[in-house]
Amino acid sequence: MTSRETARSRSGPEDASHAPGYEVAGGYELHVNGTTRTVEEAWLGESLLYVLRERLGLSGAKNACEQGECGSCSVLLDDVVVCACCVLAVDAIGSHIETIEGLTRREAAADVQAALLSAGGVQCGFCTPGFVVAVYDLLRRRPDAGELEVREALSGNLCRCTGYGRILEAVRMVQEERSRVAL
């Protein structure tokens, strides 16, 4: 008996994407990283995170908990950081979505990314895109945030590898460099 025969396979159309009901007729559009993307045949219950990662090929936002507890899925929704796992994709219709891929492309967080690397703030890297988005957002709102404020602002982003020391160091480095350049 080969393993191929052991599973109880069900014959059926190989092509149709059988989402569990409530497909959105004709699909819908999302504005992502400055372009309009069409989402076809999606189930209404899909999170923004799922649609970005699995339908639009933007897997930079991560899926560590899908419960709004870790920040690995952070994206900007109309310029506000949200957990993409907690937003229904269809609720983002008409909004501007920016992901780590978009920030990277327009080099908006290049110094944050470089500092994370040189400070040693990246180990497994699963939390990293979320931290890049969170630090980018924090430092444009509060460029001079003190250590406690930085810690509080980043406390929604979990990292299991680094103990945060090198990540906080990277934030300090960016703050220093930006204030040096501003002088």
């Binding site: 897997s59 930079g60 936002a61 991560k62 899926n63 992901t99 780590i100 891929e101 990277t104 990314q113 470089a114 994370l116 690397l117 990246v122 890297g125 699963f126 990293t128 895109p129 890049v132």
Partner: peptide, 10 residues
Amino acid sequence: KVRGEFAFSS
């Protein structure tokens, strides 16, 4: 990894 381009198993 910092660019969000590293392919994790998920």
